[in-house]
């Protein structure tokens, strides 16, 4: 199957796709932070994470894009929804922070963004001299079990300890209130 010449331009499609992905990321992030309703926040987070998965895809790693969908959108968003169901933040939104504090937070954020973008723009990033181009999942698996073995073991330990800690913390205080 040959592409129709002049009708569909792959570079244009890629540009439009990238714009959509970036828009989903920022739109979702803004919904997640600025809206008052906590359910809308979670849905905004899911949209932003979809966008981040798209950015991973554009960065050349479909494996991580699917992992992002699986772990973040699939598991973490659902867990946060459970947290909302088990505590009751929906009955009336909390009072806003005072205008002075919001202004302070906003100016700190603008300052940090300015600093970060100044650093990003001002630095000349030079690629490494010898660059491997092996983006396969096989390479990740081999590195994970040989050179980065410690990371693999450490993340297993962190997950185990966090599961135990979560159980202990969630049980603590049961039956003491009322």
């Amino acid at each position: 199957m040959t592409p129709v010449q002049g009708l569909i331009r792959p570079d244009l499609v890629a540009k439009i796709g990238f714009g959509l992905v970036a828009a989903a990321t920022f739109g979702g992030a803004i919904i997640a932070v600025f809206f008052r309703n906590i359910i809308h926040n979670v849905l905004g987070l899911a949209l932003a994470l979809f966008g981040v998965a798209g950015i991973f895809f554009y960065l050349g790693s479909p494996f991580l894009a699917f992992m992002e969908l699986l772990i973040y959108v699939g598991a973490i968003t659902i867990t946060i929804t459970f947290a909302i169901m088990l505590s009751k933040p929906i009955g009336g939104p909390l009072p806003e922070r005072s205008f002075k504090k919001t202004l302070g937070a906003g100016s700190v954020c603008v300052l940090i963004f300015g600093l970060l973008s100044y650093i990003v723009m001002g630095t000349k990033w030079t690629p490494a001299a010898m660059r491997s181009s092996d983006w396969s999942v096989k390479a990740i698996g081999q590195m994970l079990l040989t050179k980065y073995d410690l990371v693999f073991e450490l993340i297993s330990l962190v997950l185990l300890v966090s599961i135990l800690g979560a159980i202990v913390t969630a049980r603590y205080g049961r039956g003491r209130v009322e």
Binding site: A83, L86, V161, S162, A170
Partner: peptide
């Protein structure tokens, strides 16, 4: 790490 952090945060929120 994010998955572990969310699990702990959920426990703290419930507690």
């Amino acid at each position: 790490v994010a998955a572990a952090e969310v699990a702990i945060a959920l426990a703290i929120i419930i507690s």
